[in-house]
Design a protein around this nucleic acid. Structure first.
Lengths: 63, 63
DNA sequence: GCGAAATGTCAAGATACATTGACATAATAT
DNA sequence: ATATTATGTCAATGTATCTTGACATTTCGC
């Protein structure tokens, strides 16, 4: 499961800490998801999709 | 996080056991997700969406 | 180059997700 | 009515997700 988080974040000039704050998760969680250590839970994936105004399928890709 | 699993399964006349087999998870997992005990992981949500040929957003709804 | 901000990573702990095995009850079929 | 199938649920266990706190390294502005 790959994701486009880093790119989406860069497009908005958000730091990992800023994204984490907007998602109400820890900075370490954002980093872990971005660096592929694990996938977000489904509810968090929805919050991410909502924040960027995209469908989950447009952010998370089957590997 | 609500979901339409039970309906989609009924449309196909699949038992929980049959759906579990197609998803390669346990019957208890399907039951737990259907009865709202917990949400599936993101990878499992993708497998479910793929199986039914729908977008994740068409199966799982923000509550 | 120096200091600040950003990123990567580790450890320890909590809660969520998924498993097997078992059992009770409900629904269906013969 | 009895047997089979389907569903709901429990306990115990293991892995995944997420947390706080800490520290090292990289990147950026000045």
């Amino acid at each position: 499961m790959k994701n486009r988080l880093k790119v989406l974040r860069a497009e908005r000039n958000w730091s990992q800490a800023e994204l984490a704050a907007r998602l109400e998760v820890s900075r370490q969680s954002v980093n872990a998801i971005e660096t592929g250590k694990y996938d977000p839970s489904l509810p968090l994936a929805f919050r991410i999709a909502d924040l960027f105004g995209l469908a989950i399928e447009e952010i998370f890709l089957r590997d």
